[in-house]
């Protein structure tokens, strides 16, 4: 089956992103195709390369990247949600004349059209939020 995920959660509260990650791993292991993981709302705040994770805590963003590398995941970050929270790729950094681009490499900024496409292209859309 073709599955997409919508993640709408803060990395600082709850465990929605961890649940989504485990769901994704399990779906891939069962041979399903993950069409896209769309990061929306407060979730995007955590996809910053400027963040420093305490040594005794899990780097959930890094785990998404590992999965993206091994299973060719399409990790899309909502551009409107990201820019308003100060998460910029180089193009947005230049466009808005900011000091640094900080979007974690491996994630892509794009519009909500990518969520619409995920709805149209997938058999299932699962939302994980808090």
């Amino acid at each position: 089956m073709i599955i997409s995920l919508l993640i709408y959660a803060s990395q600082n509260s709850g465990q929605a992103e961890q649940t989504a990650l485990r769901f994704t791993r399990s779906a891939l292991a069962q041979g399903h195709k993950i069409h896209r993981v769309f990061f929306y709302g407060e979730t995007v705040s955590g996809i910053s390369s400027l963040k420093v994770i305490p040594r005794d805590e899990i780097d959930i963003t890094g785990q998404w990247l590992d999965l993206a590398e091994s299973d060719d995941l399409d990790l899309v970050v909502c551009i409107a949600a990201a820019v308003r929270r100060g998460v910029l790729d180089q193009q947005e950094c230049d466009r808005h004349n900011r000091v640094a681009a900080n979007l974690v490499a491996g994630f892509n900024l794009s519009g909500l059209g990518q969520l619409a496409d995920a709805i149209l292209s997938s058999d299932r859309l699962l939302t994980f939020g808090n």
């Binding site: 709302g41 519009g111 909500l112 059209g113 709805i119 149209l120």
Partner: peptide, 19 residues
Amino acid sequence: DSSNKDTLDIALACSAFDI
């Protein structure tokens, strides 16, 4: 919270894709 606006933005985007 921002969920109202975020939901509304999804509505507009999906409508633009003829959903």
